[in-house]
Structure formats: C-alpha cells, structure tokens
Design a protein around this nucleic acid. Structure first.
Lengths: 130, 130
DNA sequence: TATTACGTTTACGTTAACGTAAACTTAAGC
DNA sequence: GCTTAAGTTTACGTTAACGTAAACGTAATA
C-alpha cells in the first residue's frame, strides 16, 4: 500500500512556474478550469491541475478563449459512454482540427510575409550604405 | 496614359466578401487600419484596403490583437530610411517570428492531442459495439 | 508582541472588439 | 411625391479575462 505521495503545488509556486498571477489561477478555478483541493483554506494544486493549466496557456497562445480550451480539455478526458455523444464528440474534434489546419496555413503565410518584410529591410540597409 | 480604373469596393461588398459586418469595417477605419476614400460621404475601399483587411483577419485567426496586426502591416509597408529604425524593425520582425514558431509548436501538439482524443473515442465506440 | 509575508474572499474597475439603437441624409424605384 | 434601401454619425451597451483594492485570517520571525 503506497502512501500516495502525489506531489502538489502551492498557488505561488504554480503561478511563478507558468508566469501568471495568482489572480489568474483563482479566476480559472472560478471558471471551472482548475479545481485544487484545500489544506484548511489554502489551495493545493495537483499534477492534473498543472497539466490543465499548461493546456489552457497553450490554448491562449493559439488564440483560443478559455471556453474553447475548456471544451478541448473536456474532450480530452471525457469518457462518455453513449454512442451518440461519442459521435458528436468526434465531430467536434474534426471541426477543431479544421480550424487548426487553417491556422497552420495562416501561420506559414505570415512567416513568409515577415521574411519578405525583413528582406526589404535588408535591401534598404544596403542601399543606404552604398 | 491610363485612366487608372483601379477597382474599388463598397462597404457592403467588402463586408459580404469577408463575412464581417459594416460596423467592423468602420471600426477598423476608426482604429486607423483602413482608410477608404469617399464619394460624397460614402466609403470607397481600394485594393490596398482589401489586402489590409485580409491581413487583419488572418491575424485574428492567429489570435493577434488588432494592434499587433496593425504593427505587422506597418512593418510590411514601411519604408523607413533611418538605419537605426531599420535595425529596430528587423528586431521586431525577429521577435514576431519567434512567437510564430512557438505557436507552430503549440499547434502541432494540440493536433496530436486531438488525434489522441479521437482515437480514444473510436476505441470507446468499438468496446460499446462489442 | 508587533510586524512582515502569504494566503483568503468580495467586489468594483478596465480594455479590446465590436453590437445595437437612434436619428439623419441621399439615391432609386414605383 | 412617397417609400424603401443603403449609407452616415453619435453614443451607449456588452463580454471576456483578468487587474486592483479593501478587509481579513494565520504563521513565522525579529
């Protein structure tokens, strides 16, 4: 029998690690995205909370809203039994994927644009020093 | 000598093409992102306005704010002469590129996650029908 | 024991990106 | 000539994602 010493994190610890404020962590909890346990009144975040936080922040970098990230997380650890629900879930997953693929295209186009802009800068620098 | 019949677009026309509201176009103008000419009081959007609109919307899909998109557009068609400014611009371009590359990684990870989620859905469907 | 540090709740404030409504002008069609 | 349609300005409303401040509890430390 293991004592199950699953590591947990204080609010400051987690906030510092991911470079967010404690307010943000409480806000995410309020929105149901995290649910730390309590030691008295003080929050204790589990490894699962930590993982979810990482997913949320990744979502943010991709421009997702918290609700969208929340949905994706729910998709990920949902164990719905109903066949119909499973099909609906798969459909939503496909939809999300389409968005991401579009985003991938947008991203490459923008990288090309930046490259272009940089080249023109470099050209300008040449013509200045000539 | 060409009469320079450069095609222009009405507000409704442009709004419909890009699936935004006219309010949005006026708002972007207010923010200095577009600057249509006028025929009396009515707005006439140029090809350049149209291009900028496309860039803005692409930016939105990537999660950029209007200000960020605005900056990128300025980067793109800026013809600053000053060497110092050019270096600063290049530096900002590099910074943006770093963000985009990070975003590319995030995006691939999320695609993997979705794939994973879908596979588990499919597994569940199998075990239901067995 | 007083202060400092860190946690808590409650609640109002803020910014971006539009939505929505009112009140008006102008051009087109019947 | 009247209505309808599409444009305009002005201005207030709305939502997401926190920021910020007040007022409080608790625990270590000087």
């Amino acid at each position: 029998m293991n004592k199950a010493v699953t590591k947990s994190y204080g609010i400051r610890e987690l906030a510092d690690e991911f470079d967010v404020t404690t307010r943000t962590l409480r806000f995410y909890e309020e929105k149901g995205l995290l649910n730390p346990s309590r030691e008295n009144t003080t929050r204790l975040y589990s490894a699962s909370d930590r993982t979810r936080l990482r997913l949320i922040l990744r979502g943010k970098r991709l421009g997702l809203t918290l609700e969208e990230s929340s949905n994706i997380i729910l998709m990920y650890n949902s164990d719905e039994k109903n066949t119909e629900q499973l099909h609906a879930l798969i459909s939503k997953i496909h939809e999300k994927r389409e968005q991401l693929l579009q985003q991938q295209k947008d991203l490459e186009l923008m990288l090309l644009d930046l490259e272009d802009a940089e080249n023109r800068c470099l050209e300008s620098l040449k013509s200045v020093s000539s």
